[in-house]
């Protein structure tokens, strides 16, 4: 939850901005999020604050699970926005 919070809000703001430029459809924003969220995770955790992974690793999560959580949230978000 804490891990995703950092990614979610920033990714959403960027996705809305890009989505608005591309026509403003909700499904477009959802598509943007699928691409933006992994980039934000890569920047925030793999480049800028790599050591912060250890907080989550010490809770028993591994890198793969954290990446899967980001993609899962992105796909659920896309599904919801496509259905609205």
């Amino acid at each position: 939850m804490l891990f995703q919070k950092k990614i979610f809000f920033l990714s959403y703001i960027i996705s809305i901005a890009i989505g608005a430029l591309l026509g403003g459809k909700l499904s477009t924003i959802g598509f943007c999020y699928v691409f933006v969220a992994p980039i934000i995770q890569y920047y925030a955790y793999e480049i800028k604050n790599k050591n912060q992974y250890y907080y989550y690793l010490n809770l028993g999560l591994n890198n793969i699970e954290l990446w899967i959580s980001t993609f899962t949230i992105a796909l659920i978000n896309l599904l919801i926005l496509s259905l609205i």
């Binding site: 804490l2 950092k6 604050n49 050591n51 912060q52 250890y54 907080y55 010490n58």
Partner: peptide, 13 residues
């Protein structure tokens, strides 16, 4: 559990 050499706590929390 492992304590790394450098600080690992997330910021803004």
């Amino acid at each position: 559990n492992y304590l790394p050499q450098d600080n690992f706590l997330p910021n803004n929390v």
